[in-house]
Design a protein around this nucleic acid. Structure first.
Lengths: 106, 106
DNA sequence: CCAATATGCAGGTATCTTACTGCATGTCAA
DNA sequence: TTGACATGCAGTAAGATACCTGCATATTGG
């Protein structure tokens, strides 16, 4: 997995919105994803392209349509690599901070 | 929490590296964080500033030094809001995709 | 106090990002 | 086949980002 592409893909609110909409209803076409959005189709295409490069979505051609599906695997890997790591050390980190501050007072 | 700031802060590899180093040893000064990095101190300051705005780190002044501590809370909120959501629907998403493809064949 | 150290702030520039317009290609249905 | 529809691709301008240099400020130890 390319960490960087995943994080960069998630860094844009429009792209997160697209993921949200796909989570509501999976397998939407480009046209459907453009509905009710204040953005040109071509821009949406660009965003979807970045999401696909980050492997956050997969696409399937069906005739002249292109269906978009979420792929949650990279998100899980981000969780494993980043979130869980810091989560586990939460208590000890706060403990460090407390010690440091107390050390200063003495 | 400001979703956007957190994601944007995590979108840069240098900032993720800084978080990593703080995870190794919490409470480092700016100078320590600059050690062994091919980047000017002022650039590191900028990155740390973004991380602090995203509430991913907290700082404490101690005399002329500034100590940096990780704050894992926003990461956990990102997990709650983003990762878990997609993780839960993983199986059903693949199921949708399968059905869609089968539907096409008929 | 003074020199060394640690950090802050201003600004400049090259690059990346985002959204756009315009046109091209491919597919369906009558 | 042809017109309508769905998407692809190229080029561009405005804005954001990342890194730098140069100088200013604040703290410590002797």
């Amino acid at each position: 997995m390319d960490d960087d592409k995943v994080f960069k893909a998630l860094a844009d609110p429009n792209r997160r919105m697209l993921l949200d909409r796909l989570c509501e209803r999976n397998g939407q076409t480009l046209g459907q994803l453009c509905d009710g959005i204040d953005m040109k189709r071509q821009s949406v295409t660009q965003h979807l392209g970045l999401l696909e490069q980050a492997n956050l979505i997969s696409t399937v051609r069906r005739g002249r349509e292109k269906l978009h599906y979420i792929n949650p695997v990279p998100l899980y890997e981000v969780y494993e690599r980043w979130i869980r790591k810091f989560e586990e050390s939460r208590l000890s980190l706060l403990h460090d901070l407390k010690q440091e501050l107390e050390g200063k007072e003495r």
